[in-house]
Amino acid sequence: MSERDVILEVEDVHKSFGGLAAVAGATFDVERSSITALIGPNGAGKTTLFHVVSGFYKPDHGAVRLDGERIDGSPTHRIVRRGLVRTFQLTKALTRMSVLDNMLVAAPAQPGERMWRVFATPGAVKRREEEVHERALELLSLVGLERLADDYAAVLSGGQRKLLEFARALMTEPSLVMLDEPMAGVNPSLGVELLEHMRELQRERGTTFLLIEHDIDVVMTVSERVVVMSSGAVIADGPPDDVRRNEAVIDAYLGSPHAHEEVHEIAGESSS
């Protein structure tokens, strides 16, 4: 095997809720500075896997490694500080805070987030605040929200909230960004800009992206690698063109021939 620079490894991860195995033996990895797509039919376990990787759930079994170190079971906030940030399928805009505050709160290394430093080192707090303020406005203008910076995030539309979450995730200065359906509800032309910006960050900062996406066109154009999940397991993994022709993937999306037979049998019995 050639030397691959892997940033994230997911190894035989299992996660069940009662009798339901949401993730059942998922294994794959993500190369550094790549854009990787995670696809699969509804209920395949993609979002659950995101929850496990980002520390919201502890896996029942298996390991998750970031830069070669185990992160499974670590609390979410520590994982974020190590450079892995995620967004949510159902956006979590902080609605009663301004759009700008949504951005500022995400900035790392703000000494003023410690109570005593607020009083002890107000100068350092203010300096850091000015730094991140600039970056926040830069990112907001990138997603076209700079005009709304001082409004409550509650006034944003569904698509704008997706964009805010994307920009806010970038505020944490991440090395790996996991996006849960970033394009859902986003106006297509803005979506194209978003993808361009992802590529730019990938080129200039070496940022890695792992995204769950249902829009196959987006997946095929933007990602260098596609990981396909079905029924909690990874069933295919490779370049977009290979995955597109994979038998197992076609079955998973269209239903297996065996399942069709069963449907026919049941229908036949009930009609006789």
């Binding site: 919201f56 906030h77 974020v80 949510f88 902080l94 609605t95 009663r96 709160v105 995400a106």
Partner: peptide, 16 residues
């Protein structure tokens, strides 16, 4: 305030 709004969002932004 961010925690009061949504604790999951806050922890997903690195807050304890």
């Amino acid at each position: 305030r961010s925690i009061r709004e949504d604790e999951d969002a806050a922890s997903a932004l690195g807050k304890n």
